[in-house]
Amino acid sequence: MSRSSLMPVFDGHNDVLLRLIRGKAEPERDFLEGDNLGHLDLPRMKKGGFVGGFFAVYVSSDSGGIDIDAMMTHTQYDVPLPPALELGHSQQVTLHMAAQLIRIERASKGAVKICRTAADIRECIDNGTLATILHIEGAEGIDPDLHMLDVLYETGLRSIGPVWSRPNIFGHGVPFRYPSTPDTGPGLTDLGRNLVRACNRLKVMIDLSHLNEKGFWDVAKLTDAPLVATHSNAYAISPHSRNLTDKQLAAIRESRGMVGVNFATSFIRPDGQRNDDTPLQEMIRHMDHLIEHVGVDGVGFGSDFDGATIPNEIGDVAGLPRLVEAMRKHGYDEATLRKLCFENWVNVLERTWGH
Score class of each variant (00 low, 15 high):
43 P>H: 07
172 H>L: 04
76 Q>P: 00
197 R>Y: 10
89 H>D: 11
93 V>L: 12
230 T>M: 08
27 P>Y: 10
114 I>L: 14
269 R>F: 05
105 E>W: 02
241 S>D: 05
57 V>T: 09
187 G>L: 10
108 S>H: 08
280 L>N: 01
228 V>Q: 01
141 G>F: 00
116 R>L: 07
67 D>H: 09
298 G>T: 05
298 G>Q: 03
318 A>T: 03
88 G>F: 12
129 T>Y: 03
261 V>D: 01
8 P>M: 11
335 A>Y: 02
64 G>H: 04
330 H>E: 04
249 L>R: 03
186 P>K: 11
236 A>I: 10
201 R>C: 05
159 S>E: 07
298 G>E: 05
156 G>A: 11
153 Y>M: 03
310 I>L: 10
310 I>V: 13
313 E>C: 06
211 L>K: 02
158 R>S: 06
282 E>L: 14
105 E>D: 11
35 D>T: 03
83 P>V: 11
169 I>H: 07
74 H>C: 13
161 G>N: 02
204 V>I: 15
62 D>L: 10
190 D>Q: 13
4 S>A: 15
121 I>N: 01
138 G>R: 02
235 Y>M: 06
67 D>Q: 11
94 T>I: 01
251 A>C: 12
245 T>K: 06
5 S>K: 14
297 D>N: 13
272 G>R: 06
336 T>N: 04
324 V>C: 06
86 E>N: 15
182 P>E: 04
2 S>L: 12
103 R>K: 14
350 E>Q: 14
120 D>G: 08
221 K>W: 07
234 A>I: 03
116 R>I: 05
212 N>I: 09
276 D>A: 15
185 G>V: 09
187 G>T: 06
170 F>K: 00
309 T>M: 14
351 R>H: 12
48 G>T: 06
107 A>Q: 10
311 P>V: 09
325 E>M: 09
286 H>K: 09
23 G>N: 07
202 L>N: 03
75 T>K: 14
315 G>Q: 04
241 S>M: 03
59 V>T: 12
342 F>Y: 15
168 N>E: 10
289 H>G: 07
305 F>Y: 12
7 M>R: 11
154 E>T: 13
305 F>V: 06
304 D>A: 08
